[in-house]
Nucleic acid binder design. Sequence first.
DNA 1: TAGATTGTTAATCGATTAACAATC
DNA 2: TAGATTGTTAATCGATTAACAATC
Lengths: 233, 233
Amino acid sequence: MRGKGTENGGSMIETKEDIIASKATIARLPTYLRFLRDCRKAGDENVSSTRIAEHLRLNPVQVRKDLALVSVSSGKPRLGFPVSELIESIESFLGLRNTHDAVLVGAGHLGSTLLLYDGFRNYGLNIVAAFDVNAAAVGRKINGISVLDYSQFSATVRRLNIKMGIITVPKEAAQKVADDMADSGIRAIWSFAPTHLVLQEDIAVKYEDLAASLAVLSKKLEDKLKDGDTDSV
Amino acid sequence: MRGKGTENGGSMIETKEDIIASKATIARLPTYLRFLRDCRKAGDENVSSTRIAEHLRLNPVQVRKDLALVSVSSGKPRLGFPVSELIESIESFLGLRNTHDAVLVGAGHLGSTLLLYDGFRNYGLNIVAAFDVNAAAVGRKINGISVLDYSQFSATVRRLNIKMGIITVPKEAAQKVADDMADSGIRAIWSFAPTHLVLQEDIAVKYEDLAASLAVLSKKLEDKLKDGDTDSV
DNA sequence: TAGATTGTTAATCGATTAACAATC
DNA sequence: TAGATTGTTAATCGATTAACAATC
């Protein structure tokens, strides 16, 4: 009944946040989470790794291993895993149960789109302010979030002790913004700018590289079309 | 001087499109490409794998292996690789030199943002039309691209022989759109809808899963903050 | 020439899959 | 009970890194 880490006195709530999961596992967890939320919505109380694997086209053993890593309670033969508990386990593991305050820099089309999207709340994201250098954008409110002048960026971030920043500026401005973020105490950056950022190792960066995704898809399509040719001839 | 595949009679232009590269390699190539384009802009004629690796924080051997896989000409000791040739090699390999016509479904905020972004042209993407079910959106032109009624989707895609589709509809509508795309002959889908799509294996799908990215970043941040604690105590 | 950089072979590392006993 | 499903150990697969001779 007890967790393994007896040295870890801290929290009373049983979680497995300290377990080390591979990058690949961490990337799969949100996908499981989404499916599990759908299952819960559909009224399912239990779900088997087999079913998850079939739906997501993964290997069932892989799913089981991933789940075993993060799940507080283990699955039951014939039944599978309790859906709600599993959701809680994954959410805790990924840190989604703690709300993360964040700021966004660059209130253009993409930035505004992100501000307007409320779905990130399900993932613990709370954007408290946006910034822009463009006088036309400054002073507006988008989805209840104020767009402030970029000159106030550093002071605001420090005052509110913000740890997460979102970059939606043109690529030319991205490195400067990233540097300012790092200087202001931000520890995690979600960058939509199509450029590689040079930062200290202690800053976590996640690139949302649309051009790279597109390139990968283009490659797949080229290969498909080529295969298709050989098949049909 | 000749390519290895003597059986592949086809094209006269020397490329390595038929080589099999790992998923990991393919994902890194667009990153190299971006850096190389910057180098070319800066006037560099040659660039070494070491320099690329340093900038992107990768292992130089890994970079060299990736480049060796796709590059037509090999690098020269002391000099490195010729920038322009390398750019061409990567572009050819990824199929970016062929323009891909595409259609977009869902002309909301996100869809409009994508329509307004011209940077994808550098990656061979040409969005020829957008579709929406919302009468308010239909008939508009965004960045020169007409938003058509979704009832015309299938006929239009077939007529223009479109092979690539972009999904920017709410998640509830995504599966239906994906099915329609598959039925209309589309072979590659770029989905921004936060849901897993169930499709035949012969359709290439690339998910742009913002929530999943966010979850990964949240996890990194949680870990950083935890590490930070232990360090400072 | 000397030395930076290349390409390749071998070693290591990590992740996935297969096999199978345990169990509800 | 029978059988679906679990968790785990071992085997396989793939990708990264280390070592080093070749070369401009």
